[in-house]
Design a protein around this nucleic acid. Structure first.
Lengths: 116, 116
DNA sequence: CACATATCTTCGAATCTTCGAAGATGTTTA
DNA sequence: TAAACATCTTCGAAGATTCGAAGATATGTG
């Protein structure tokens, strides 16, 4: 009856998949629009090759889906609610951050969670 | 104006802290009751020394708080809502698991989320 | 005080992750 | 077809994580 353990293992896999700042940012970008690798690389100011590697991991865990159009590979969230859930996790960030006020966190929360 | 990056970094820290099945289980145990290290070790069937190491990491990230009574160190969640948020993450587990039906996941969800 | 109990910390090996560089694949353009 | 473009995969070094074992602390007990 080790269901709890199996579920805990799966949850830990999800957390591991999200446990990199670049991947968090990728997901938050994809929350608002489908983008290709270079589109993401531009917005996040990261080398395209690195974005590709992160997408490979997100793809392996079925967190993103790919649509190819010519030489472009467009990505979108498999489950868009994932982005919202991550933003909800900000509740556990507040009070842990040096040099960033709660107001600033609220601003980011709105940018990400937001309709803006 | 790299607030988004700072916030992404903090979120990734949280995910990293949760990115181990034992720590997920520790948090879900603490959701229902305060426990000492051996109490956790018994319930999770893990060596106490390992539980202690995991608690050390959770403590470092202020996810648990310690109360000492004699030689016992009792732990509880700093923010009990954390356990609920983790359970909400199960929404992103379903469909990814081999050998465990959705009914079984639902059962675990109830055990953890639940009033039981 | 000596001893047992409860927990923490340190150490080191095995394993995993990250990241840039280089090479492979597929697509469009000239 | 050659060249440019977009992306993926592989490789290897540097760094981080995990885990048991051993040693350090602190608190009760006889």
């Amino acid at each position: 009856m080790p269901n709890r353990q199996i579920v805990a293992r799966e949850l830990a896999e999800i957390f591991k998949t999200l446990a990199h700042p670049d991947r968090v940012r990728v997901i938050e970008e994809l929350a608002s629009s489908e983008l290709d690798v270079n589109g993401l690389a531009d917005r996040l100011d990261l080398p395209g090759t690195r974005v590709s590697q992160h997408l490979g991991k997100l793809r392996a865990h079925r967190m993103v889906e790919e649509r190819r159009d010519g030489r472009h590979h467009f990505y979108r969230l498999t489950q868009p609610e994932l982005a919202r859930w991550i933003v909800d996790g900000l509740a556990f960030v507040e009070g842990r951050m040096q040099g960033v006020s709660e107001g600033q966190i609220a601003t980011v929360r709105e940018m990400w969670a937001g309709s803006t």
